[in-house]
């Protein structure tokens, strides 16, 4: 009896979770293809009766053509996110390998230090970085933002990559040593190809963090509209009353879509790459 109740309850719970997680995204899409007058007339409708793509045209067009300039924001976000991924990986891969394999002085403390870094409130870091970037005249530039994103993502990247490197059997690398390869050659020819899935997963994770980040973009880029990323752009425009809600919904779809595409293409890779080691409890 109880078993049957749970059998039914399980499907109810799954359906409930699906509605709760997907409804806001459906609502986002639905509002983005309706004219604003239609929304104000029928606010309770869940169907599109009056389909339009003008909202997308307006949100994407450059500011001097009467649009909201999302194309240039998308470009800025893409530059920042891709640069953060490449640089964070370039820094984290050697670091993670060293922590996983090489017995250097202070190795045990380094991982603790990186974890501790990740526990501190972002806003505590934001104030001195604000002062620092102002002094270096990097505030308002994308380079300054990239620098901050690298520092925020390298510790996580090291953590996930290190877990993966430790699962590669040491005997494979020793075989390379016996064949006369140097340590760096072993990393390049043996360990890196084997760790490729984890490297991809970590790179995607960094991409998502950089693409979605809001606080630092808000503090550092607010004054410089040319360099706005999508987060700060959408947040600022949604605070003004002049831009119609449906146009901003089109903007939301445009900035969410790349993340969803990346995510669905790589979901398995990502979830397995990031929770590797969690099964051991």
């Amino acid at each position: 009896m109880e078993r049957q109740v749970f059998g039914v309850l399980r499907w109810v719970v799954i359906a409930g979770f699906l509605v709760a997680t997907l409804l806001p995204f459906y609502y986002m899409f639905m509002l983005s293809v309706r004219p604003i007058e239609d929304l104000l007339l029928n606010p309770d409708s869940l169907w599109v009766s009056n389909f339009t793509l003008d909202t997308y045209r307006e949100v994407l067009a450059p500011v001097d053509e009467g649009g909201q300039g999302f194309v240039s924001m998308l470009r800025n976000s893409a530059i920042v996110a891709v640069a953060s991924v490449l640089l964070a990986l370039a820094i984290a891969i050697p670091g993670a390998y060293a922590i996983a394999r090489l017995p250097f002085f202070g190795r045990r403390y380094v991982s603790v230090l990186f974890l501790a870094v990740y526990m501190f409130p972002g806003i505590v870091l934001a104030i001195p970085l604000f002062v620092l970037l102002t002094k270096l005249e990097l505030r308002g530039s994308l380079a300054g933002l990239i620098l901050v994103y690298i520092s925020q993502t390298v510790p996580v990247a090291i953590y996930t990559l290190r877990n993966y490197f430790t699962t590669i059997p040491e005997s494979i690398e020793e075989a390379g040593l016996v064949d006369g390869l140097t340590r760096l050659q072993i990393i390049r020819k043996i360990s890196l190809p084997l760790a490729l899935p984890s490297i991809m997963a970590t790179g995607l994770f960094v991409f998502m963090i950089a693409w979605n980040e809001f606080l630092f973009a808000l503090l550092f880029l607010a004054d410089n509209r040319d360099n706005w990323t999508v987060s700060i752009g959408l947040a600022t425009l949604s605070g003004s009353v002049e831009v119609p809600t449906t146009v901003l919904m089109a903007g939301s779809v445009v900035i969410t879509l790349p993340i969803i595409v990346v995510f669905f293409l790589t979901e398995r890779l990502l979830t397995e790459g990031l929770t590797a080691g969690a099964e051991k409890g």
């Binding site: 979770f17 699906l18 997907l22 806001p24 609502y27 979605n212 999508v230 987060s231 919904m249 993340i259």
Partner: peptide, 23 residues
């Protein structure tokens, strides 16, 4: 189902807060 349930976590915070505000 599993992938859908992860969406709120991976979507940009600015976009999902905006949708919640409008809802």
């Amino acid at each position: 189902v599993r992938a859908s349930m992860l969406l709120p976590y991976v979507a940009p915070v600015v976009a999902v807060t905006f949708v919640w505000k409008i809802m």
